[in-house]
Each structure stands twice: as C-alpha cells, then as structure tokens.
Write a protein that binds this DNA or RNA. Structure first.
Lengths: 140, 140
DNA sequence: ACCTTATAGAAAATCATTTTCTGTAATGGA
DNA sequence: TCCATTACAGAAAATGATTTTCTATAAGGT
C-alpha cells in the first residue's frame, strides 16, 4: 500500500492530507517499527520537519479510526504500528521495536472453532520476541 | 485455580496477602470480567469493603508481574483480565466485558512457523466480539 | 477567487497513574 | 508469644501523558 492509496482512503473519510500529516505518514511508513506518540514525534522532527506533538496524536487517532494503525500496550507504554492490511498479524521485536507483518493467518481455524462462545468480531494474533538481527548482536 | 493457590504464589514472590488484597482478589476472580482499575475499585467497594484506589493499582501491578493478570488496551482504556493459567487465550465481550478463557491453542502451529522471523518469546491470541447472552438481548 | 470546513499548533486543562510519607499490619525468628 | 523486620494501606501531592480550547491558516469544492 502506497502513500497515494492512504491519501485516498483518508479522503474517502473526509480527512485532509496536509504537508504535516504527509510528513508524519512518510516517517511512520518508512520506519517499519512501532512508536509511542512522543517517539514518532521525535522521529519526524529529525528526518522530515518540525510538526506539533498534538498533530501526531491526532493523526494516530485518525489512522486508528480508519484501520491503518493499531495501538499496543507494551510494558505500560502505548505503541502504534502501521497496518496497511485489514487482516494482519505482527511479529513485534521487544528489543528494537521493529514490526514485521505476517501474511498468513493460522488463527482462522481457531476463529471458527471458538465461534461457539459468541460472535467473533475480530481477533488479534501477535508474536513478541527478538528478531534475527537483535539476536545476532548478542546483547547481554 | 483457587484463592489458596494464588495466595501461595504471591507468598513465593514475597508478596503479602492482606485482607484488603484478599477482598480485591475475591472480587476480581468472582466477577469473571475485565475491569479498568477504577471499575474494579468501585466493584470491590460495593460488594466487599472499602479499599483505597492506590491499593487496587498496586495489586493489579503485582498480579501482572506474577502472571495472574493481563492488561488490555481497548478503546483507549486499559482493562485487566484475571489469568489463572500461563498459556491463555481469551474471548472478550466488547459489550458486557465478560471474559471467557479458552483452553485450546490453535496458535501453537503458527508459533512454530513464524519462528523464521525471530525467536518468539510469547504470543497473544485474543478474540473480541459479542458473547451469546449479549447477542440474545438484542441491543440496537 | 470564494466559501465552507478541517487542520495546525501553542497553551491550558484534564485525568489516570505514580510517588511520597506516615501509621499499621503481616511474617519469620527467638 | 513477643519482637524485629519488612511490606502494605491509604491519603495527599506530584507527575506526565493525553485531550481540549482557541485562533489563525489552509484545503477542497463550487
């Protein structure tokens, strides 16, 4: 999914894509990792341009509404991942905070089985651990 | 898992079980639903006895450390579920906030497969939707 | 170009959570 | 059982992330 598509999706929901939002979006997509709002703010400031922290909060809120971002609670901090696809599962590295998208869903079967207890609206299957490169760096 | 076992587990970690903590624990276990700290505080106050909000926060923190509770981020609110088992998956009702424990794990297979991207430390598989009774009440 | 409506961003406000502090109570050993 | 040690309870204050407010500005449609 490209920037163009995202802009269109936002337009469909009557959100506007300003240069500030574009800067944050570019950073968010490029980075391929999860951020707290404050972290993303710093990241954008360094690489693209100065935007307000409020703007970052608002864009993350908007993206979440549209389904393009997902908040995670990890160690008491709220991290956001960029989610280009509806049905997504992540592998989240607890060390470098990189996020890898998984393109298979072994949980679909489970969804069907567990339908017994109620109507499943959505499910989350996420893996947490250390990615290859973090492992190879052999931190103590 | 009974109150007795929980008390022992807390003891092993050198935590003390006071009458206040026991009251909160009983409420938490009995209710079979998820709570925000404030909600649990109100719940305990109504049914058992008056305890401080700080105490509730501290017990939830303690239980989380020991692995007996898990925080969830839902609609920007942090909810805690009681987790008597290590390896647990939930069905969370978005309406009544009841939590049902699922005793099968269809994700184990996925864990093995996705081992390629890194070392999986833990995974989460959770289902969100509406439980039977909420469905049958037919809210609009 | 104009009009309507959403956004940017600083500043203030809010509110959940944490910390501090003092009195109290639980635990383990003598 | 008593004492010493250490953790806890809870009120009050502090913290800090997030939200709200407000005014100027900019985007998109006509």
């Amino acid at each position: 999914m490209e920037l163009k598509d995202i802009q269109q999706l936002l337009h469909e929901h009557k959100f506007r894509v300003t240069k500030e939002r574009e800067a944050v979006l570019l950073a968010f997509i490029d980075a391929g990792r999860m951020f707290t709002p404050a972290q993303l703010h710093d990241y954008v400031k360094e690489r693209y341009e100065q935007v307000g922290l409020t703007t970052v909060y608002r864009l993350l809120e908007t993206l979440t509404k549209v389904g393009l971002a997902t908040p995670f609670l990890i160690d008491g901090e709220i991290y956001y991942t960029f989610c280009p696809n509806q049905h997504h599962h992540h592998f989240v590295c607890l060390q470098c905070h990189q996020v890898k998208e998984l393109f298979q869903c072994s949980a679909q079967q489970a969804v069907d089985v567990d339908h017994q207890v109620g109507t499943v609206e959505y499910h989350k299957l996420d893996f947490f651990g250390r990615c290859r490169s973090c492992e190879e760096e052999k931190h103590c």
